[in-house]
């Protein structure tokens, strides 16, 4: 190792972090190298000076001024916020408890909606344009082929024009008339 490599060993030497072997080699180098020995001595002195001479202390009126500032800070904070953030129940503030409750409720709602069976409505909800129309029956487990054959089941209020809806209503009334009279349409 040369001097520039030994220079990087000075700091661990000052911190007493060199291993036994490293320390032995380092000391042997210092004995034969006055420059590294002088640098080590200077760094040691600087370290002591930094610890002893760079300590600073505050003015004696610091604490009263700090207390006055804290009082001002407390008065500036709204009382409702202090109440919300102050610890109450088992070390938790009301604001954090209410946040936790909201999160728990959201988890329950999401969980329930995931595990419920398919809850598609049997009857389409009426819309403003179809409130006067009779509801069109939609069966969940019915055969799609038979639904396709029956125009009453395939036609929905959303995808028909007013004219088509009137025609469907007329057909429906006619069929109901036949049913009531015991005849086939």
């Amino acid at each position: 190792m040369n001097c520039s490599q030994y220079r990087f060993k000075i700091s661990p030497y000052l911190d007493q972090e060199l291993t036994f072997t490293e320390l032995k080699m380092f000391r042997e180098h210092l004995e034969g190298c006055p420059n590294c020995a002088e640098l080590t001595l200077q760094m040691e002195r600087t370290q002591v000076a930094m610890r002893d001479e760079l300590q600073a202390s505050l003015a004696p009126d610091f604490v009263p001024r700090l207390e006055a500032r804290i009082r001002a800070e407390i008065n500036r904070t709204p009382s409702w916020w202090r109440q919300m953030t102050a610890p109450r129940l088992v070390g938790f503030s009301p604001i954090s408890l209410s946040g936790a409750a909201a999160a728990a409720l959201a988890i329950v709602v999401i969980g329930v909606s995931l595990f419920l069976p398919d809850s598609a409505p049997l009857v389409d909800p009426p819309t403003s344009s179809t409130q006067n129309n009779p509801p069109v029956m939609m069966t969940r487990n019915s055969n799609p082929a038979s639904q396709a054959a029956n125009p009453l089941l395939t036609t929905t209020p959303q995808d028909s024009t007013p004219g088509q809806r009137d025609s469907v209503r007329r057909d429906f009334s006619r069929q109901m008339k036949y049913v009531n009279q015991g005849r086939r349409p």
């Binding site: 220079r7 990087f8 700091s11 661990p12 760094m43 600087t46």
Partner: peptide, 17 residues
Amino acid sequence: VKSRVNRARLRLQEMLA
């Protein structure tokens, strides 16, 4: 941290010199 302290001490010493 260790390497920064090491280099900072050396740099400080150079400046002081």
